[in-house]
């Protein structure tokens, strides 16, 4: 059809634009030589990644630990908050709504700087704990938004029906609200995990020496120039990402919504 030809062209060029760098990166992970000149197929960089890069893996496990704990905390707090904000009226509602969504809209560097200054002020030096707190904070608004958009699909009369049929507050919460919101809660958790694994700017501000996460470690590697070990790592992470996205597919609806 003529009318969508232009947008089709732009769309497919955009896909090339989005995927080409990742593709080049992946191909050169299998290159023998250290620079971007193709000299032959080799798995040497993968070998280096899996055997000779203890720091990368330490950072990787830090990242996983932080991602799971901060996402879990944010999901629990945020889901409860979403239930309160979506279905109840109370005095401080506007305040909680505004302040908890603000971290979403301020540039990361502002959150990073203010948290660093705060942590120094309260003399909190444990790097991983700082990162955990920071990640939970920036994950909360995502959880709130995703769970609220799920709850929005249901009418409040469902809660009234539960009460009318004899359920008390905690029974309504455990038997009706949480199971009903579950797809939203799961996708919120997955988003939070991804956001946490992804974060560089905030982490790099709050983390101290010896507590780097994977992105912070990658930064220290690429700051000095191209290193094929990073290429190999990218391939591994890309694979992981694609698996994760497949897992998340049923929950796409709520992600696209935001």
């Amino acid at each position: 059809m003529k009318k969508s030809r232009f947008s089709k062209l732009v769309f497919f060029l955009t896909l090339v634009f989005l995927f080409m760098p990742l593709f080049v990166l992946a191909v050169y992970a299998f290159n023998e030589s250290k620079n971007m000149l193709w000299t032959g197929f080799s798995l040497v960089w993968f070998e280096r990644l899996f055997t000779g890069s203890r720091n990368i893996w330490r950072a990787f496990w830090n990242s996983i630990l932080i991602a799971l704990t901060s996402a879990a905390t944010a999901t629990v707090l945020g889901s409860l908050g979403a239930i309160g904000i979506n279905w109840y009226n109370f005095k401080l509602k506007k305040y909680v709504q505004t302040v908890s969504l603000l971290p979403l809209v301020l540039p990361e560097i502002i959150i990073g700087v203010s948290m660093l200054i705060f942590f120094v002020g309260i003399d909190l030096h444990l790097g991983l704990l700082r990162i955990y707190i920071a990640h939970t904070t920036f994950n909360l608004p995502f959880v709130l938004l995703v769970v609220i958009s799920r709850l929005d699909e249901f009418d409040f009369s469902i809660i009234e029906a539960a009460r009318d049929l004899g359920a008390r507050e905690h029974q309504t919460l455990l038997r009706i609200i949480i199971p009903m919101a579950m797809p939203g809660i799961i996708s919120a958790f997955l988003i939070a995990v991804t956001m946490s694994l992804e974060d560089f700017v905030i982490t790099s501000f709050v983390s101290g020496p010896g507590s780097s996460t994977l992105p912070v470690h990658i930064y220290s590697m690429i700051r000095t120039g191209v290193s094929p070990v990073v290429n190999a790592l990218s391939v591994v992470l890309l694979g992981g990402t694609i698996c994760l996205v497949f897992l998340m597919r049923p929950f796409f609806k709520y992600i696209a919504h935001e």
């Binding site: 009369s157 469902i158 539960a162 009318d164």
Partner: peptide, 17 residues
């Protein structure tokens, strides 16, 4: 509501999805 011996049919049914 949960202590009353009345039950309600809601306009939009309010079934637990």
């Amino acid at each position: 509501p949960n202590k009353r011996h009345t039950n309600m049919i809601f306009q939009n049914y309010a079934l637990f999805p």
